Computed example of a mutant assay.
Amino acid sequence: MAMTLEKLPLPRELATAVVNKAKDTSTIAALSPSSPMIFTDKDFLMFNGKSEAEVVAEGQSKGSYEQDTTTVSAKRFKVQTTTRVTNELQWADEDNRTQIIEAIQLDQAAAIGRALDYVIYHAVNPKDGEPLTGYDALTAGAVQVPAGDDEIANVDALADALNQTYDVNGVALSRTWASRLRKVRVPSTGMRFYPEIPLNLQAGSLDGITAATSGTVNGTKAKTPTGVLALMGDFSLIKWGMVRDMFATVIPYGDPDHAGTDLQNVNMVAYRTEAVFAYAVLDPKGFAVLKTPAGEGA
């Protein structure tokens, strides 16, 4: 449904105020640094060093190790979001500096960032919540940790699932679990056990490691509840970047979103933001996922 002038008190002077509702962001972008990508098929050569020094006596034969390497291919995906508005709204924005168009484009850019989590974590299209064909969900391939009633034990269980093999450097929290952790208190004093989680749930750390909170972690847009509460692991194992930088386009005519009407026929324009990502998860077992029991949503 297009935004129309009927929703705005024009021709009075208009000022736009953005309501700061809780906004989901990409936890992968927060926990895993991006790297430039080019529009070619890219493979990552994985080297798992496993050498150990050998003590040898004088004249003793020296042993060796067989070192295997594996490759992981990066996958590309294109994302876009399109918003229709009346051309009168466009004129009003130009004349009165209402910043409505700027707010629309910023909102679209944030949506594209969230898509990174939906594709990599859940293999889900955030627009309709349906599974994506040809993509593997990280939450399916990661080490599975069933959630119990003791939240402190849940944190420890995530770490224990990885610490013998991988270096844990980050944790992505769902808003559901972040809220639960914030409420855990020390029985003897009543103090919060995780004071680093503030009221807005935007934790920068959890128990000494970097943390990020978002509804993308449990996939709030997914039609089928994922049950995911958190992912912990080595986020350097997620390699991602933009093949083509995010760009915005003004579309003055045609039917760009298959709404059934030509833009010019109904005096509308469309604003579209697009980007192309590439990513590879080098080893899903470098992550542990905390899930609720079967049948319970998160």
Rank of each mutant, 00 (worst) to 15 (best):
M1P: 13
M3P: 00
K7W: 05
P9A: 10
E13Q: 09
T16A: 15
N20S: 14
K21E: 15
T25L: 13
T25F: 15
S26H: 06
T27W: 05
I28D: 07
I28Y: 05
A29S: 10
L31S: 03
P33D: 13
S34R: 13
M37S: 03
M37C: 01
I38F: 06
T40I: 09
T40P: 00
F47N: 11
F47S: 07
K50F: 04
A57V: 06
G59E: 11
G59I: 11
Q60L: 01
Q60T: 03
K62R: 13
Y65G: 05
E66W: 01
D68W: 04
T70S: 15
T71I: 09
K75P: 06
K78G: 01
Q80P: 00
T81F: 08
T81Y: 12
T82Q: 03
T83H: 01
L89F: 01
Q90H: 09
E102A: 14
A103R: 11
A103Y: 07
L106M: 14
L116N: 07
Y118P: 05
V119D: 07
H122V: 07
K127H: 11
E130A: 09
P131Q: 12
Y135K: 06
A137R: 07
L138F: 04
L138A: 06
A140Y: 08
G148H: 11
A153P: 02
N154Q: 14
A159K: 10
Q164N: 15
Y166D: 06
D167V: 10
V168T: 14
N169S: 09
N169K: 05
V171R: 04
A172L: 09
T176F: 05
T176I: 07
A178L: 06
A178Q: 13
S179M: 12
V184L: 01
V186C: 02
P187Q: 10
G190Y: 12
R192D: 10
P198T: 05
P198A: 05
L199F: 06
L201H: 11
A203G: 06
G204H: 04
S205Y: 02
S205R: 04
G208W: 13
I209M: 15
T213D: 08
G215D: 05
V217T: 11
G219D: 00
T220R: 02
T220P: 00
K221H: 04
T226C: 10
A230C: 07
G233F: 10
I238F: 09
K239A: 14
V243T: 15
M246L: 15
P252W: 13
D255S: 08
G260C: 03
T261Y: 13
D262S: 09
N267H: 13
A270N: 08
A270V: 10
T273A: 04
E274L: 07
A278V: 02
A280H: 04
V289I: 03
V289S: 01
A294Y: 11
A294V: 15
E296T: 09
